[in-house]
Amino acid sequence: MINYLPTYLDTTLDRAVVLGYSRIGFRLRSRAWSPFPPQALKGRTALVTGANSGIGKAIAAGLAGLGASVTLAVRNTSRGDAAASEITAAVPDAAVRVERCDVADLADVREFAAGFLGKTDRLDVLVHNAGVMPAGRAESKQGHELCLATHVLGPLLLTELLSPAMAGAAAAQVILMSSGGMYTQALHPDDLEYRTGDYHGATAYARSKRMQVALTPTLADRYAGEGISVHCMHPGWVDTPGVATSLPKFRALTRPLLRSPAEGADTAIWLAATDGLPSGRFWHDRRIRREHYLRRTRERSADRNRLWQFCAAATGVAIG
């Protein structure tokens, strides 16, 4: 049985932002949650991108702790091996392996997916966690703005390529790790590559996270016939190496309020371990959340369609 705070209190926490996104909100809400059943994911397989530190490592550890066999898809395999060692030290029976994949490089994604499918014909959980926040505008090997490539194009292509393995599982889950920062940004269908205006890494990050949310219903519809659910979520404010590096002033001001990586990972693990949840929705702290709080961020269906058309063309994913 799933329990929640009263709706009015939960909504108040969410609208207050500082309370809802911080460890305060997590700890208040989590008092009402039921614990994960032991070995809830026993016999299932999972893949987590960007799993060598922070939230990604915490997600991988949580999935392994529930019995899943977990692949860490990382750019740096030395750091990935270190993360895997930490996970197996904490979860002695964990089945964890490390594979190299640069999610921003579409050629690398294709090579990784081919190798992965050669080793397994079943994937139950795919978590798109890999993230970047560049100091200045940078491009992937295919010439796409780096946040767009890492958070949108690479995950879209990887999901498409691995969908046969997910279709072979019962009730597979795709989970996109977004950010509460996306609430500040609208889609920019005329400038998805962020080529105009002054470039700011935090803005590029939030724009690409808005794209993830906008694409989630489309992806949910695309894979529904294969029994694959697609979820998007944000973890709240979490103290991670990426925040320390990219947002040092924010971290200095909010550090006492920041969530631990394990707290930030909770909803992703819960989504993976909970059957029967509605697909195509946006989640935070185990509850469906609104996609917009500001009128200026609302997009038209035509804008979502233009985003999908652009992404499909950029990745070579067939629309149909």
Rank of each mutant, 00 (worst) to 15 (best):
R298P: 06
D198I: 04
P256K: 10
A32Q: 04
P235L: 14
A60P: 06
S179Q: 01
A149Q: 02
G143H: 09
G50Q: 12
C101D: 13
R122Y: 01
R255S: 12
D121V: 07
D10C: 00
G54S: 08
E111D: 12
N76P: 00
Y223K: 06
Y4V: 01
I175T: 08
S279L: 09
E291Y: 00
P35D: 12
L253S: 10
V18I: 10
R31Y: 01
G227A: 11
A318P: 04
I2G: 14
G154I: 11
H188S: 09
T71R: 14
P217Y: 04
A314D: 04
G320I: 09
L5G: 03
R31V: 00
A224C: 10
P35N: 05
H200Q: 13
I59W: 05
R304P: 00
G80N: 12
D221E: 15
L117M: 10
C147G: 14
I24K: 07
S246F: 10
G143D: 02
H144L: 07
R222N: 02
Y223P: 15
L161M: 07
R23H: 12
H151Q: 01
C147W: 06
F116E: 04
P217C: 14
I288H: 06
Y205C: 01
A172W: 03
E160Q: 15
L47F: 00
A138I: 02
M211E: 05
A244E: 03
H151M: 05
V238F: 05
T274Q: 11
C232Q: 12
L106Q: 08
P164L: 00
D221S: 12
I288W: 09
A95T: 15
V103A: 02
G43W: 11
H284A: 11
H292C: 09
V103E: 09
S30L: 02
V18S: 12
A149K: 09
A268T: 00
L219G: 14
A16G: 11
G25L: 08
F282C: 10
D266V: 03
Q185I: 00
V109F: 12
F26A: 12
R259P: 15
G50M: 13
H144E: 08
K57R: 15
A224Y: 10
G316P: 13
P6G: 14
R222S: 08
C232A: 15
D14H: 06
Y21P: 06
I24T: 09
A314Y: 02
R29V: 07
D198W: 05
A130Q: 06
R195T: 15
V132T: 05
Y4G: 03
T11K: 08
G236N: 07
L5I: 01
T297W: 01
G180H: 01
R15W: 02
S85E: 12
A32L: 13
T254D: 00
W308Q: 07
R287L: 00
W237I: 00
G20F: 10
T120E: 12
G56L: 06
T88V: 14
D124C: 09
A89W: 07
R15Q: 11
G65D: 10
D14Q: 06
A262Q: 09
T196V: 04
P248D: 07
D124E: 10
Q142R: 10
S69L: 04
R306E: 11
A202S: 15
T12A: 14
E145P: 13
T45F: 04
A268D: 04
R122F: 01
F310H: 13
